[in-house]
Design a binder for these strands. Structure first.
Lengths: 217, 217, 217, 217
DNA sequence: TATGAATGAGAGTTCATTCAT
DNA sequence: CATGAATGAACTCTCATTCAT
């Protein structure tokens, strides 16, 4: 059966045979194309050309344009969520973990701006995807993982008590995302920025998101 | 030819004769329609039907679909920016001002969720509008106003020094927006929530955004 | 509202204002196009070109290609059914009436072979339309009218008793239709045949088809 | 290249080795698939799945979709024509022979409704096949055989003289076919009908169709 | 102003057919 | 023989935009 639903894309562990080369090519071409011209702004033909495959092959691997977007989304968020999990299970306090998540996201942005762009500009917020199945689940999963992290931090005394974990998680993710947006747009710095500059922005974002704007008493 | 560029829509001061009733109807219908189905998901016909006017009349008042979106955007961001200005020129510290902005945004969401939805979901991020003229200017203006507010707060000693105002403003706006998104999506609370609930969320968002997650020393 | 469902095409009595000129043009072009290349063999573009209208206008008046076919079908069968009714309510015996129906059908074939072709080759039998709503109803209505005619003829003593009206009606319609098919195909005579030839065929068909229905002397 | 034109499908006499099992599976699957969804409504993939073979194998045995249809048609009509021949060379008058043909067709419908459905609904009349080679030849052969039968019957005094054999044959075939159509559609009885019911319908069809051909007593 | 019929380019999707393995 | 990935032309349907009234 040639059709692979996004959620069933990797039935067994990730072995290379189970993920046809061309499918990956299309998926990654889609990331670039969506990042370049936006979901609505790019045609299947663009994706196919970018991937170097025939038009129809896109429809061999993906039911329709929507599923293609969903798959892109799935892959990206899965990576992000796995990173959150990995960081959270590592050493350090909850504050360290949250800072790690922020640093990770900003690092990814440097190495793969296109993917982040799509996640930020197209997928994360579009009313369409918010209603779609896995897309929304992913988003909520990320929120939940962060909220859980906050809760544990509060219990351990690493984080301030009295804040609702859900609100805190949303704020953290939002701050992170808006800073990325500002960077994507060009208001804060560019992926081509020097290491020092990026390091500075990273530091700043962590400080603001974690430490707040008010001066320490 | 009756073309009106968005920015020239109100050439003289805002008197009621210069803003035809039908034009307003279309504009507000557009807000609702865009909020409902997204910019790309709704047709001119939808807007016209929602406004209760004939198909072609939309093109009498707006050059094309893009200008319609721009006009919606203009109106909404103008209100938001004016609110920021008004709040900033009022009494209180910079921290009070920033808290006021957050409260204002959450209040608007309660009374006109559709407008906020469009602003949040459609306009603020779409790569299309970010490249468009006034839309982007508005976004950057809002960022700048907040950054300026932060800078003044730092000078006055109300806010922690050492943070880049731009990063701080982006984080604040992002936290605010993500909390709104989470509410839009239903993860934090609903516009139909009781006054007490909304008040609680408002308080939390202010605390997190301004105070940070780390415990006060 | 621009869309007219086939069944609601003539809400009030048939006045010319209620049936836009272009809509008729499309409908009749469709008859010719379907007759020429078959339903599946002709594209909307063919119909539009044949009608001398823009591509999109077809979709202004008909929801989709299917509805276009249904409408063609509706119009044709409606004419046929009205003819059956008119002939049946005229003077003469039931045998005369049935003969009249046969003659009418063969006459129409001479004047408008395309319409008959569509009715015969495309619509009457396609599994698609047989399952569709009005199409099937029309077919069954024609069968029923003829069966009723047979029944009355049997009661009046004009037709042989002991035959099931339904079977008799189906046989009559089938004989008629197959003779038309044979003519369409060219096995019996052509619409360009001389009057005398056509008259002969007509006579023959009536004789054969009715012969079995007449009471044994 | 392993192309087999339909007519060359069985080069030597019908021995089992020359007709690969998979080829038959495909052919019969095609009958079912076409009967189910119509020629245009079903894809090669449907046929392959129904036959339980791989996609490409269909193209191993049949040049293209058209040849597949032609082959189905060939097989079916061949059976029918052979039956006509067998019945005609058997004992009895021409009237008996024609009645036998009708009975045979109705019997086949009971045992293999799908095949009859395809013959009736898809193949016999579609403008496509009417233009195709063997399909049309088969149809005309059947007509000719029946016409010849009629002619012989007239000569022998079994059938009424003065009727054109071609018209008579077309009428007979048409009556038969329309009765089958009515049964396919459900207006006359179902293949699941009891033996008695089917026998009754058979008797009726024979009576109606032949009645007109018998000489006046 | 106001209407909605008319236009047509554009994009998504299908699916018969080919071909490398 | 057998498989199914790969190809791309064809076609339907959408919808922003124009225009005559």
């Amino acid at each position: 059966m040639p059709r692979r639903r996004a959620s069933a894309a990797r039935p067994r562990a990730r072995n290379l045979e189970s993920e046809p080369e061309k499918r990956r090519a299309i998926l990654h071409a889609a990331v670039r194309a969506f990042a370049e011209k936006g979901y609505h702004g790019c045609r299947i033909a663009d994706v196919a050309r970018e991937a170097g495959v025939a038009y129809g092959l896109v429809y061999h691997y993906f039911r329709d344009k929507d599923e293609l977007l969903e798959s892109v989304f799935d892959e990206q968020w899965t990576i992000f969520i796995q990173a959150i999990r990995a960081i959270s299970s590592g050493p350090g306090t909850s504050a360290d973990h949250l800072a790690g998540v922020i640093r990770f996201a900003l690092d990814v942005y440097r190495t793969a701006p296109a993917a982040v762009k799509v996640l930020i500009l197209e997928v994360a917020r579009s009313p369409h995807s918010l209603r779609a199945g896995s897309t929304r689940r992913m988003f909520e999963t990320a929120l939940k993982l962060l909220a859980e992290q906050v809760r544990r931090g509060q219990e351990a005394g690493d984080l301030r008590r009295g804040l609702e974990p859900a609100v805190a998680a949303a704020s953290l993710l939002g701050a992170l995302e808006m800073c990325l947006t500002a960077m994507v747009v060009g208001a804060l710095g560019r992926p081509e920025a020097s290491d020092e500059e990026m390091e500075r922005v990273k530091q700043q974002v962590v400080e603001v998101a974690l430490g707040g704007l008010l001066p320490r008493r």
